[in-house]
C-alpha cells in the first residue's frame, strides 16, 4: 500500500469498511428437529472514516453491541468483511489478528465487571502492554501513570482497587486501558449509559478531548440518541439487525426519513415542560429476532406500512447526499 497522508486517506478510503456483516446465532427451536437461527446482525455495511465519530443507535436487541464485538472478533462473525486499511480482519489468523487488536480497542458499558476486583488499577492498565510485550516493567508503570493523568485521574489512583472508585472514575479507567496501546479506532459500547447525567457529561467531554488530542476514530454505540447526536459526525440507525438509515448528524435530525428514525426521535422526552410535543405512537414491542417479520422488519409497528412493506424487503438507497435509508415509502 502506498503511503498517503491521513487527510487524503480520509477522503479517498475509509479507515474501516464494513461490508455485509452478518452474525447469526443458532438457537434451539421448540422441537428437536427444527433448529432456528437468530439473525442478530443481518447484512450491515458502513464506513468508518479516519478521525470521525460514527454513532450507532438502536433499541435493545437490535444487534448494535453484537456488531461492535464482531468487528474485533470477540464474537466470530458469520459472514461479511471488515476492511481495516484494506486488510480484512475477518480473514486474519488469531496470531496476525493480535497486531490489529492494538489498533482497534473497545470500551464497555460497565468497566467494573471487566476489572479484576483484587488487582490494583495500575496492573489492570499495564495488562494490555504485557500481552503485547511492550516496554520494561518500569516503562509500563510510567506509561500507566501517564494514562491516568491523560484521562483526568491522579497518579495515586494507580494503587487503588476497582471498588474504591466511583462509576465515573471506573469509566475513565476503561478509557485509559483502551487507549494505552495507542489505538486508532476505539469501539465504545454504551460507554456512558450506566452513568448519572453529570458524570455522563464529564465523560463525553473527556472523550471528545481525547479524540482531538490523540486523533482517534470512534464507533460510538448507544441507545441514547441525544448523547449520540452530541458526539457523532454521522449516525446509523439500527432495527432488528439491519441499518435502516444513515446520515450526517445534522441531516438526520433536520430530516429523518425512515419512519423508525422519526418514531425514535419523537419518543425522546424533552427537558422542557413548555415544549411538550405530539408523539408518533408506536404500537407493540420489538418482534422476536427468532421470528423476524417478512418484508420490511419494521412493518409490524410502522404507522405507514403498506402491502408492499409486508412482502418485499426494502433496499438501502441514497435519498440525499450521504443520506441513506431503506424504506419503500421514500
Amino acid at each position: 500500500m502506498s503511503r498517503v497522508s491521513p487527510t487524503k486517506q480520509a477522503s479517498a478510503e475509509p479507515l474501516l469498511r464494513v461490508n455485509g456483516l452478518k452474525k447469526y446465532y443458532a438457537a434451539s427451536g421448540r422441537s428437536a428437529f427444527r433448529r432456528s437461527v437468530v439473525k442478530a446482525v443481518d447484512g450491515v455495511s458502513f464506513d468508518l472514516r479516519e478521525g470521525e465519530t460514527y454513532g450507532l443507535v438502536g433499541e435493545s436487541g437490535c444487534g448494535k453491541s453484537t456488531l461492535g464485538k464482531s468487528l474485533l472478533r470477540l464474537t466470530e462473525p458469520t459472514e461479511g468483511e471488515a476492511l481495516y486499511r484494506g486488510v480484512d480482519l475477518f480473514k486474519q489468523s488469531r496470531k496476525s489478528l493480535q497486531a490489529y487488536r492494538r489498533e482497534l480497542q473497545i470500551v464497555f458499558q460497565d468497566p467494573f465487571s471487566s476489572l479484576n476486583p483484587r488487582q490494583i488499577v495500575g496492573r489492570a492498565l499495564e495488562e494490555p502492554l504485557v500481552i503485547h510485550g511492550i516496554g520494561s516493567p518500569k516503562e509500563r508503570t510510567d506509561r500507566a501513570m501517564e494514562m491516568l493523568i491523560t484521562v483526568g485521574l491522579r497518579m495515586e489512583h494507580y494503587y487503588r482497587l476497582p471498588h474504591e472508585l466511583s462509576g465515573g472514575q471506573r469509566q475513565r479507567i476503561g478509557l485509559a486501558r483502551a487507549l494505552i496501546l495507542n489505538p486508532r479506532i476505539v469501539i465504545c459500547d454504551e460507554p456512558v449509559s450506566a452513568l448519572d447525567v453529570i458524570i455522563q457529561s464529564q465523560i463525553v467531554n473527556l472523550m471528545r478531548k481525547l479524540q482531538a488530542e490523540l486523533k482517534l476514530t470512534y464507533l460510538f454505540i448507544a441507545h441514547d440518541i441525544a448523547v449520540v447526536r452530541h458526539i457523532s459526525d454521522r449516525i446509523g440507525i439500527m432495527y432488528l439487525g439491519k441499518l435502516v438509515e444513515e446520515a450526517p448528524t445534522d441531516k438526520l435530525f433536520a430530516n429523518p426519513r425512515h419512519p423508525y428514525t422519526q418514531v425514535l426521535l419523537s419518543a425522546v422526552p424533552v427537558p422542557d415542560p413548555s415544549g411538550r410535543r405530539e408523539r408518533i405512537a408506536l404500537e407493540g414491542d420489538l418482534p422476536s429476532p427468532l421470528d423476524p417479520p417478512s418484508g420490511c422488519a419494521f412493518h409490524t409497528r410502522c404507522p405507514f406500512a403498506t402491502e408492499r412493506c409486508r412482502t418485499e424487503t426494502p433496499i438501502r438507497r441514497e435519498v440525499d447526499e450521504g443520506h441513506f435509508a431503506a424504506c419503500h415509502l421514500i
Binding site: 447525567v197 453529570i198 455522563q200 457529561s201 441525544a226 447526536r229 435530525f253 426521535l265 425522546v268 427537558p271
Partner: peptide, 8 residues
C-alpha cells in the same frame, strides 16, 4: 443537572 443533559 439541566445543563448536563444533551438536548436534541
Amino acid at each position: 443537572l439541566m445543563k448536563a443533559v444533551p438536548r436534541l
